[in-house]
């Protein structure tokens, strides 16, 4: 359980995140939406301890984040940065194996448990076919799944994903989000994901949090959030809500 109380973030006297109160629980997919520079990534980085909140209180399971040891924290929370680094000359399996670092540390041996977790992560993400190829030779979608597998191998309770769909085509976007959704349900993970596409967010998230200029503008279930005026306030352009031809969910279109 993540608790954010009055957390702010400032850089060079510029406030990127105004005092914010939020809570995140396991078993849910949270979507962070908003336009560029609205503070989505900043919030995610604070949760992932990539950046320290300037003020306020952020706790995991009631303990302030800074009290957690780095590896102890990584066993609870896994983070995928927005820009995936070049994996140089690593194979998929090797990269996924790095996910076990929080468990075995610098000197610990790779146990049977570690191997089992790696295989499980590969299975869950359906990366068996290319786990032994070099990461750099994989397509964008395959690569994204390998990185996701590394996060899963970490065996954490929370996944923090910063725009995991940015480099993917439509088919792969759906594939990755469906996978995230499935993992959340099967493993009771808490997932916090920064998304650009509000329709994707509405379809796969349990809870949407909209940020604007470093403040939480609105939050709620996709049904509550998918309103013309709410979306217009979030994105700053007129939006219109329609029902998907299948009749199952709402979609937003630009006027």
């Amino acid at each position: 359980m993540f608790d954010v109380k009055a957390a702010t973030f400032e850089v060079n006297g510029k406030c990127l995140l105004h005092p914010t109160d939020l809570g995140f629980a396991e078993g849910n997919v949270y979507g962070l939406i908003g336009h560029n520079g609205s503070g989505k990534s900043t919030l995610l980085k604070i949760l992932a301890q990539q950046q320290q909140a300037s003020q306020g209180d952020v706790r995991l399971d009631g303990r302030p984040l800074e009290d957690w040891g780095p590896r102890e924290f990584a066993r609870q929370v896994a983070y995928l940065p927005q820009q995936l680094p070049s994996a140089e000359t690593l194979t998929g399996r090797e990269l996924i194996g790095f996910g076990r670092y929080p468990w075995h540390g610098l000197l610990g041996r790779l146990t049977r448990e570690d191997h089992a977790q790696i295989e499980r992560a590969i299975e869950l993400t359906h990366t068996q076919d290319f786990a032994d190829r070099l990461v750099e030779t994989l397509s964008g979608g395959e690569r994204q799944r390998v990185w996701l597998a590394m996060l899963l191998a970490q065996g954490s309770r929370f996944l923090l994903l910063d725009e995991p769909l940015a480099a993917l085509d439509m088919a792969h976007q759906v594939e990755v989000l469906a996978l995230i959704r499935k993992l959340c349900e099967e493993l009771q993970l808490g997932v916090i994901v920064v998304l650009h596409d509000v329709n994707m967010a509405a379809r796969y998230c349990d809870h949407l949090i909209a940020l604007h200029s470093g403040r939480v503008l609105a939050q709620g279930s996709p049904e509550e959030m998918m309103k013309d005026d709410t979306l217009e306030a979030i994105y700053g352009i007129p939006m219109h809500i329609m029902t998907h031809p299948s009749g199952e969910h709402a979609i937003a279109v630009i006027h």
């Binding site: 990539q50 780095p70 990584a74 983070y79 994996a87 690593l90 929080p102 610098l106």
Partner: peptide, 23 residues
């Protein structure tokens, strides 16, 4: 020799290394 795990992960960049729990 024992530092090889850091040396493998560090070139992946600070965010990843930090996310994996390396101080």
């Amino acid at each position: 020799r024992p530092f090889t795990r850091w040396l493998d992960i560090l070139p992946l960049g600070t965010p990843t290394a930090h996310g994996l729990g390396i101080d």
